[in-house]
Amino acid sequence: MLVLTRKVGEQILIGDDIVITVLDSRGEGVRIGIDAPRGVKIQREEVLRAVTEANLAAAAADAEAADALKALLQSGAVVSTDATPGRRGVEVDPAEPRPADA
């Protein structure tokens, strides 16, 4: 890792087309500006981490919902499908235990 000390207004060049400029320094924070081609992704690490964690949680929830539906279908609790045009659904026999009750 390259460690540099820069003052407000000074720049760091990365390659031929990325320029990082120190805009302001306040307390323990530094404001920087990044000039890069549109095709270069620039993301804050903490935002990327939060999105990744949310995606993993959503994928786990989807897997749990799929497992619950699979268990419901395998239990034989599905009696018939809803034939209303434009709607999809199932009717469940109330006498059959739900997977969560089993």
Rank of each mutant, 00 (worst) to 15 (best):
M1S: 06
M1D: 07
M1G: 13
M1E: 11
L4I: 10
L4M: 03
T5Q: 07
R6S: 03
R6G: 02
K7M: 04
K7Q: 12
V8A: 01
V8R: 03
G9L: 02
E10D: 09
Q11V: 11
Q11K: 10
Q11C: 04
L13I: 06
I14M: 08
D17W: 02
D17P: 02
D17T: 09
D17A: 07
V19R: 14
V19P: 02
I20S: 02
T21I: 08
T21Y: 01
V22E: 02
V22F: 03
L23K: 08
D24M: 02
R26L: 09
R26K: 14
R26Q: 14
E28H: 10
E28K: 11
G29F: 11
R31M: 05
I32S: 06
D35E: 13
A36D: 01
R38Q: 14
G39R: 11
G39Q: 14
V40P: 07
V40G: 03
V40Q: 05
K41V: 12
K41N: 12
I42L: 07
R44P: 12
E45D: 10
V47M: 06
V47Q: 07
R49A: 02
T52S: 09
T52H: 09
T52D: 11
E53C: 01
L56N: 10
L56Y: 07
A57H: 11
A58E: 11
A59F: 04
A59V: 01
A59T: 12
A60T: 12
A63F: 00
A63R: 13
E64I: 11
E64K: 13
A66S: 15
D67W: 08
A68G: 01
K70Y: 08
L72N: 11
Q74V: 00
Q74W: 00
Q74M: 07
Q74Y: 06
S75D: 04
V78R: 06
V78Y: 10
V78H: 04
V78K: 04
S80M: 15
T81A: 13
D82Q: 07
D82V: 15
A83F: 05
T84H: 12
T84E: 12
T84V: 05
T84N: 01
P85A: 12
G86I: 07
G86T: 11
R87I: 05
R88T: 13
V92C: 04
V92E: 05
D93Q: 02
A95V: 06
A95L: 13
A95Q: 08
E96C: 14
E96K: 15
R98G: 11
R98C: 09
A100K: 08
A100D: 14
D101I: 01
D101L: 13
A102H: 14
